[in-house]
Nucleic acid binder design. Structure first.
Length: 572
RNA sequence: GCGCCCGUAGCUCAAUAGGAUAGAGCGACGGCCUCCGGAGCCGUAGGUUGUGGGUUCGAUUCCCGCCGGGCGUACCA
């Protein structure tokens, strides 16, 4: 015990291995500038140990020596601290596998509980400012399910970046200028006039959805015939303005209900008013990146990898959407962001090269601007895709989906798949209260952990001043701890790779590990020492589940609704 | 036609710098267990990673051709 305490260091097993590995590589004279050299991975199979390093294989090319020979050298010089490491082995083409000692695993429980809700956080970002722009749906209709997916993914990724020390801003770009708003006004005017007995067709390329009908009725109820006598242009403008603000309010409300809050709602019109797009045009012109052809002004985007050049000013003198969008992104940089991440819909992927080209032409490093495409969503019922309404303009609204399956399930399902994949969203599964539903399964794990403590109190067991974790020796117990200590790395990798789907994947695994442990070992047994250790493990697991669910923006319930008995459910 | 994304077990998906015997869950089959809250445990079956080449000591991963799916290909937004 004495020795144990003495060698106890404020390091996780991973940090310890990286630190000793780094020292070892230096001793052996290897260049260790590339931090990736110290990356650790989890062996594919359990019997390959707990943590693996690929350093030897990655050094092999440069050193022109066999990976296994290098691995052997590393092992020979690696100073083993028995508190952390049981043994080290070479395996396969040159892997170095580490087997962790139970003592350091047991000690991690205290670390996790001490860190509490900060467990999983880090300072990798060092306060770097990063902006995420997502959803940014046109304010011409209600939000659809792809917007809901974008909202979930963007929000969770923002949470992840924030957790690892970046200063994150969430921003929504409002397209409140240009042709579509004009069309919106004309469409609403048509509904309004029709409702007041002057049948007027909605423009062919206008917006035909029912929501404008409802809005027209609403306007009649509050403002009566006030717009009837106006000149057509004035009426279209006024109603367009009203429709825009109405839709915007709806978007805001849908998103707030969904738990997604934007720091900035940036309006396109402000750029046009301040003529920032014209300043951008001048800069591109004076730096020689433009030319004139057929009375239009073009940007030589093909010089930066785009497949063709793009128009900035049309032949009749109007700025294109693209030019204003470039100005918008320049505006973001001017506000001091170090890095921009955009989420766009699948129909905009062809737009990436030109935006990237423009920002490069304006002097921004290519890697400072990143776009993720959020692929489409197929809604399934009982495993079958159900047809969206055939009528033009009808969509499955985000609000309808959230109403039916709830915020928690929606958010989890939307983030559960990598964004580059189309998502099949099974509505019935999302609503299911049972183990097949991953959201339920993870939340149940949290509720279970809470329940064990509730039960312990009922049985008169003390749950305070618990300290000793030395009785955690069983395979299921150790497996659970190993899963717990993966959490910080999972959070970091999910953020840095823009792959938020890793988080729900991890939580499913963690929940499985807890359920297994639970079924294998009774926590509340008579043996006080064992009970103490298991209670501590249960509590640490509860904490990590809670932290993970918080990052997903999902509730961590302390109990689940009963399946078959309608027991008293207390509220409050 | 051209460009981009995707194609992994019956289904839904993984595979962390090009690295180990391509892994989970669900479903199927056989057997256990059912105890703190509703299920977990052991085992079996299931793959030429769409296909054909190439680079490499090593390719699901990189390159080229082909097949299939999605999206784009506007002086629209």
């Amino acid at each position: 015990m004495q020795k144990l305490k003495k060698s106890r260091k404020k390091m996780t097993p991973q940090e310890h291995i990286q630190s000793v590995l780094s020292k070892t590589l230096e001793t052996l004279g290897f260049e260790t500038i590339d931090p990736r050299l110290l990356l650790l991975e989890k062996p594919k199979q359990e019997n390959f140990g707990d943590i693996a390093s690929t350093a030897a294989m990655n050094l092999a090319r440069e050193a022109k020596r066999a990976p296994r020979v290098i691995a052997q050298e590393i092992i020979d010089h690696f100073e083993i601290d028995p508190f952390y490491i049981d043994k080290i082995e070479i395996a396969g083409p040159g892997y170095i596998n580490f087997y962790l000692a139970p003592a350091c695993l047991q000690a991690m429980i205290a670390d996790i509980r001490r860190a509490g809700e900060n467990y999983g956080k880090s300072d990798i970002g060092r306060g770097q400012r990063i902006q995420l722009e997502f959803v940014s749906a046109n304010p011409t209709g209600p939000l659809n399910v792809v917007s809901a997916r974008a909202a979930s993914v963007g929000d969770v990724l923002a949470n992840l970046f924030s957790a690892i020390g970046f200063a994150v801003a969430r921003e929504y770009y409002v397209n409140d200028a240009g042709r579509q708003v004009k069309l919106l006004g004309e469409s609403l005017a048509a509904r309004y006039l029709t409702a007041l007995g002057r049948p007027t067709p909605v423009p062919a390329d206008g917006y035909h959805g029912d929501y404008l009908n409802h809005l027209a009725m609403q306007i009649i109820a509050t403002r009566g015939e006030a717009f009837l006598a106006m000149a057509e242009e004035e009426r279209d403008n006024s109603l367009g303005e009203m429709a825009l603000e109405h839709m915007l309010q709806r978007h805001r409300k849908s998103l707030e209900t969904f738990g997604v809050h934007f720091d900035v709602w940036f309006r396109e019109s402000t750029l046009r008013e301040s003529e920032e797009h014209l300043a951008i045009l001048d800069r591109l012109k004076s730096s020689g990146h433009t030319f004139e052809k057929d009375e239009a002004v073009w940007f030589r985007s093909s010089e930066f990898g785009d497949e063709k050049d793009r128009v900035l000013i049309t032949s009749d003198g109007r700025p294109t959407y693209f030019l204003v969008d470039v100005a918008y992104h320049e505006n973001k940089y001017n506000r001091g962001f170090d890095r921009l991440i955009d989420f766009w819909g699948p129909d905009h992927h062809g737009y990436i090269p030109r935006m990237s080209a423009a920002l490069q032409a304006l002097g921004h490093p290519k890697e400072k601007f990143e776009v993720s495409i959020i692929q489409q969503v197929n809604l399934l019922r009982d495993g079958r895709q159900f047809k969206m309404s055939k009528r033009a303009g009808e969509i499955i609204e985000m609000d309808e989906l959230i109403d039916e399956v709830g915020v928690d399930a929606s958010r989890f399902f939307f983030v559960d798949r990598r964004t580059s994949q189309q998502l099949d969203f099974d509505i019935e599964l999302a609503k299911e209260e049972g183990q097949n539903n991953p959201v339920w399964y993870v939340q149940m794990a949290h509720a279970r952990a809470c329940n064990i403590f509730k039960k312990a109190l009922e049985k008169g067991y003390s749950t305070s001043n618990l300290k000793d974790t030395s009785r955690l020796t069983d395979d299921y117990e150790l497996a659970l701890i190993k899963k717990l200590i993966e959490f910080p790395e999972t959070v970091a990798q999910a953020a840095l790779n823009s792959e938020p789907h890793r988080l729900p994947g991890y939580l499913k695994e963690l929940a499985t590990a807890l359920h297994r442990f639970y079924h294998q070992n009774i926590v509340l047994i008579d043996d006080e020492a064992i009970r103490e250790s298991r209670l501590l493990l249960t509590d640490a697991t509860r904490q990590v589940l809670k932290n993970g669910l918080a990052l997903l923006g999902i509730s961590a319930p302390e109990y689940m609704a009963k399946l078959d008995s309608v027991e008293e459910v207390e509220i409050g």
